[in-house]
Design a binder for these strands. Structure first.
Lengths: 245, 245
DNA sequence: TTTGGCATAAGTGTTGACAGTTTGGCGGGG
DNA sequence: CCCCGCCAAACTGTCAACACTTATGCCAAA
C-alpha cells in the first residue's frame, strides 16, 4: 500500500530495488553519508533481505556505497576527489565513444540526431519551465557508438551518479545555451568524419562540466552526513532535469 | 576435501567464489558457452546457493556470463565482436590512465618503474621458461594513474577477461621483445611529461595487441560451446603467463 | 513423418531463520 | 576525571526450504 511500485521493466525484485534505492538517494531521501541497513530497507519496501542485498551489492559495484567486510554500507560521500575520479572515467569513456560514433554513425543517423538536437534546443530555450524533454544528447551519442560495454558503464553506472552530484550542486540554466552550441560543434565534427577532433571537442566539453561542478561544489564544501535515514521516504521517481553537459 | 581453498584475502565466501569460478574458467574447467547452474556449483564447492548467486551476479556484471531473467547463466562466447568491444573500452580507459600517469607520477616512481621494467625484460628474455615474473607493466602504470575507478574496472574486471581471451588464443612469445620496446617508449614519453604522446603511444600499443588477438582468433574461428560443465574441475589457480601487451 | 499440446523436471527468485562479527554503552578500576 | 574491559544489541554472512517460471521430453493427432 505504501511505496512499492512494481516496475514491469525489471523482472526481478533485486533489479527493481536497485532503481528504487537509487531513486531514493536521488530524491534526497537518504542523503550521502547515511547508513543503509538491509533489514531497514527490507521493511521499508516490504520485501525480504535477499533482493535488498543484491541491490546494495550492485550499488556498491558502481561505487555509490562503500562497505568493509562486516560493517554496514554507507552512501559514499560527495567530495572533490570522488568527482575528479568520476570525471576522469567519464572523459575517457565518452571521448572514445565520440570517436567511435564519428566512425560508425551513418548519414541518416547524424542528420536525425542533429534534428533532434535542434528541436530539443528550441523547446528547452523557448519554454524554460517545460521539463527539457528527456532527450539526452550524450546518451544518444553513446548509443550510436555501438559499444555495448561502454554504453553499459556510462548509461547504467556513471550517469546515475552524475545525476546525483548534479542534484546536490545544482545546475545553472545559463550554461544550457553554450552547452547546446558545443553539442552542435561535436556533431559537426562527426559529420565531417573527423574522429580526433570530435573526441577532443567532447573531452573539452566534459572538462568544462567538471570545472562547473567543482566550483558549485566549492560553494557548499562538503555534503553533511545527514542525521537519519529513517525518513518515510517518497518512492516516487525523481523528476530531475535531463542532462545538459 | 576436494577443491575448496579458503583465500584469506577474501573475507566473504561470495568474493572467494568469484575468484574461484573465474579461475575455473581460466583453467578451462568450464569453457565458454557452457551453462553454470547455481545448485551445481554450490555442490561442487560445498557451500550454499547464496554465495554462488553473488559470485555469478558479479561475473555477469563484468560481462563474462550472459543471462536473461529466468534462464540459466552461460559463459559468454568469445567472438570477434566481444573482443572488439572489450578492446574499445580498454583503449579508452588505459589511454586516459596513461595520460594521467604522465601528469601525476613523480620522478622517483618513473625511475623505479623503468628499473623494474628493465629487470623484468632481462629475466624474461634471458630465461624464457621462467614464468615471466608477475610483473605487469600495465597494471603498475594504471596504479600510478591514481584513479580508483579506472583502476577498479581495469584491474578487477577487464584484465581477467583479457587473460581468458589470451588463454584461448595463445600469446606469441616473439612479440615480447617488441612489446618491451613499446613499453619503454611509453615510459620515456611519460618522463618527458608529454601526456598526449604517452596516450597516443599507449593506444597504438593496445591496438597492436587487438590486431594480434584478432588474427589469433581467426585461426580458430569460434570457440566451440564445450559439451558438459560437470568436469571434476581442478580448482588450482591458473598459471597463466603475465601480461605482455 | 511431422506438428501441436501437455506433463514432468530442472532451475531460478524469494523467503525466513540461524550463526558469527562488529559496535556502542555501561560499569569498575586506576 | 579518565581509561580499560566486558556485555548486550544490531547487523551482516550464510544456509535450507518454498513458490514460480522456463525448458525438455513424450504422446497423440493430422
Amino acid at each position: 500500500m505504501d511505496g512499492q511500485e512494481e516496475d514491469d521493466s525489471a523482472r526481478s525484485l533485486g533489479e527493481a530495488l536497485f532503481r528504487d534505492i537509487l531513486a531514493l538517494i536521488h530524491s534526497g531521501g537518504i542523503a550521502p553519508g547515511a547508513t543503509l541497513g538491509e533489514a531497514t530497507l527490507a521493511r521499508q519496501f516490504g520485501v525480504s533481505r535477499g533482493p535488498v542485498r543484491e541491490a546494495i551489492r550492485r550499488l556498491q559495484g558502481i561505487g555509490l556505497v562503500t562497505r568493509e567486510p562486516f560493517a554496514r554500507a554507507r552512501v559514499a560521500l560527495l567530495d572533490r576527489a570522488a568527482v575528479d575520479d568520476l570525471f576522469d572515467m567519464r572523459v575517457a569513456l565518452e571521448g572514445r565513444a565520440c570517436a567511435l560514433a564519428a566512425t560508425r554513425m551513418d548519414e541518416s543517423a547524424i542528420t536525425s540526431l542533429l534534428a533532434a538536437l535542434e528541436q530539443a534546443r528550441r523547446r528547452d530555450l523557448g519554454d524554460p519551465d517545460i521539463p527539457p524533454d528527456d532527450f539526452d544528447f550524450h546518451l544518444q551519442l553513446i548509443e550510436h557508438a555501438r559499444s555495448p560495454r561502454i554504453s553499459a558503464v556510462l548509461g547504467g553506472d556513471l550517469y546515475p551518479l552524475l545525476r546525483l552530484y548534479r542534484r546536490w550542486s545544482g545546475a545553472r540554466p545559463e550554461r544550457k545555451s553554450v552547452a547546446y552550441q558545443e553539442h552542435w560543434q561535436i556533431l559537426r565534427a562527426i559529420r565531417s568524419r573527423d574522429a580526433d577532433l570530435a573526441r577532443s571537442l567532447m573531452e573539452q566539453h566534459i572538462e568544462k562540466a567538471r570545472a562547473n561542478l567543482m566550483t558549485a561544489l566549492d560553494a557548499s564544501p562538503t555534503i553533511r552526513p545527514a542525521p537519519a535515514a529513517h525518513s518515510p521516504a517518497v518512492p516516487t521517481a525523481p523528476i530531475l532535469p535531463a542532462d545538459q553537459a
